[in-house]
Amino acid sequence: MVLLLPDGEADSHRRPSALSYAIQLPFARALARAGEGDGLAVHVLRYRCRGWNADDAHPAEDAAWAADEVQRLYGDVPVCLVGHGMGGRAALRAAGHGAVTSKQLMGRRVLIVHGTNDERTDPELSYRLAERAKKANRDTCRFEVHSDGHALRQHRSEVVALAADFVRGSLFARSYARPVADALAAPPPLGLRMPLAAGFGRSLRH
């Protein structure tokens, strides 16, 4: 099971817009297609409100609730949290849930992807987070999408393919693509500044 966690805002108790959910649907469908043969299911989480809201960390609470629901509805199945923007932060916070097999952090497999031209969230912050995580958990890697911004629109197909490869490798013990395996094996900084190559998605469609 993949729980896809959308982006959000720092502070807001308003309900999320329908657009924030709809934006994630093509990504969800692509992940579902990639894992169809393995029986992968993908759900996009609808947050109660669109803000993180300081210590309340509402999206992380919602993600943990959703993982509980997965176990209640489907039994003891492994869960992968996939988040965009604030959803990535929620994934890291909620990843201590017993059902989660990728993210947070001890005993989890962690992938961070960041655009180098992100003007909303400093890429160096995610690098320092990955660096700290790598010290405690060798199964951590980070990819940089050069010239792309916060939404990762310019290299969307490559990002989707990277996420799909990581999900299948983490949930179904598939072999990771060579760049992912190299990034996981490499020490910092190399494995935490791995460039996402143009055409990564095409190389997996064979």
Rank of each mutant, 00 (worst) to 15 (best):
G107A: 05
A161S: 09
A18E: 00
V77C: 02
N53L: 01
D7S: 06
L25F: 07
G51I: 00
D148R: 01
R33N: 08
L3M: 06
L152D: 03
L25R: 04
L45F: 10
L105S: 14
G8H: 04
G83Q: 05
A66G: 10
Y127H: 05
M86F: 13
S203G: 05
T116Q: 00
R174N: 11
W65C: 08
S203W: 11
A10V: 12
A60M: 06
A18K: 09
Q24M: 14
R108W: 10
L171D: 00
P59R: 04
D68C: 02
E36C: 05
V42L: 02
S126H: 13
P187A: 12
D122I: 08
A22T: 06
D165E: 01
P16N: 01
Q154C: 12
E144T: 08
H97G: 08
H146I: 05
L45W: 10
K103T: 15
A177V: 07
S157H: 09
C49D: 12
D76R: 06
H43Q: 08
R156W: 15
A32K: 05
E144V: 05
L4T: 08
Y127G: 00
A183S: 07
V44W: 09
C141H: 11
H155D: 02
E61R: 12
V167N: 02
Y74W: 09
L40Q: 00
G39Q: 00
S17Y: 04
Q154P: 14
G98S: 01
T140G: 04
